[in-house]
Simulated scan of single mutants.
Amino acid sequence: MGNPRITKLLQAHKSGKEEALDQLIPLVYSEMQKMAKGRMRGEDPDHTFSATALVHEAYLKLINFNRIDWQNRNHFYAIASQVMRNILVDYAVKQNAQKRGGNRYRVTLGQEHVKHEVNLEEIISVDQALKKLENIDERQARVVECRFFGGLTIEETAKTLGISEPTVSRDWKAARAWLNRELGEEG
């Protein structure tokens, strides 16, 4: 995630230069694909939402955010994690409503959720708990968003949020503990 051209192209696109988009796509697509694959890895093979579909939908939403003052590529990837979260939650809510009538399920958020299977009910439960955490500690919520919904590593999360790796590790540990308590109360 280290290409400084991304920042310049994001700012050029925001200022109305449509040709910047043609140059931006190949620079961000592979990183967004990596994020989406990390998020989708381990999902049910019959899952109807693919990593590629997640990237395409997220990218389309991101390029239409003209009101965002893109500060740099890290800001772009942090927003991309939030957009992926919203897309996955919306998808999970729709699927859950169709299949199970919207029941809530107990979830334990652990290290394995970063890169492995997460079912639709878990996505919804984590999203609801994460909304509460945002009111308590917004940075911890952003760390969870990058790790859980964006599929980013500790190092990638640190770069994306502009904080140190030890801070990400501490926030990830604290947020997981808080979320596990919160999710345990719902189960």
Results as ranks from 00 to 15, higher is better:
R181A: 01
E43I: 08
Q11P: 11
R139F: 00
A92S: 15
H113E: 08
V89L: 08
W172F: 13
E18A: 14
M35Q: 12
N119I: 01
E121S: 01
T108K: 15
T48K: 05
T48H: 06
G150M: 05
N3D: 15
A78Y: 04
G187D: 00
E165S: 11
Q23K: 15
E122R: 05
V28Q: 10
I124G: 04
K17R: 15
T52M: 06
A36R: 06
G2Y: 13
A175F: 10
M1D: 00
K159M: 07
G187I: 01
N180L: 03
L179F: 07
N86T: 11
K99I: 04
R104P: 07
E121H: 07
R100S: 08
E138R: 14
K159F: 04
G162T: 06
G151V: 08
V107I: 13
D127P: 00
K37M: 12
H13M: 13
A97N: 15
A97G: 14
E18V: 15
W70C: 01
N180R: 07
N74T: 00
D137N: 15
M35I: 11
L183I: 07
E112F: 03
K94L: 05
E43Q: 12
V83M: 06
L130H: 12
G150D: 10
T108H: 12
L9D: 04
F76H: 01
Q11I: 07
E155D: 14
E145L: 01
L60E: 08
R85M: 14
R67A: 05
K115H: 12
L21H: 05
E185M: 12
V28R: 03
R85N: 00
R104W: 07
S50N: 10
T52I: 08
W172E: 02
K159E: 15
D69T: 01
Y77G: 03
E186R: 14
F148Q: 06
A174S: 03
L161K: 00
V168S: 05
E185F: 04
T7S: 06
H116Q: 14
K159I: 13
A53T: 09
K173H: 11
W178L: 06
G187V: 04
S125N: 02
F148C: 12
E145F: 03
M1E: 03
Q71D: 07
F76W: 13
A141M: 07
A58V: 04
N180P: 03
K173C: 11
L161W: 01
K8F: 07
K173F: 02
C146Q: 02
F49G: 10
E117K: 03
G162D: 08
Q71R: 11
H113Y: 11
D90W: 12
A51R: 02
V144S: 00
Q95E: 15
F149N: 04
L24I: 09
R5A: 13
I136R: 15
D69I: 06
I124P: 01
E182M: 09
V144M: 14
S81K: 05
G42R: 04
E19T: 12
R142M: 04
S81Y: 11
P4S: 11
V55M: 10
K132G: 02
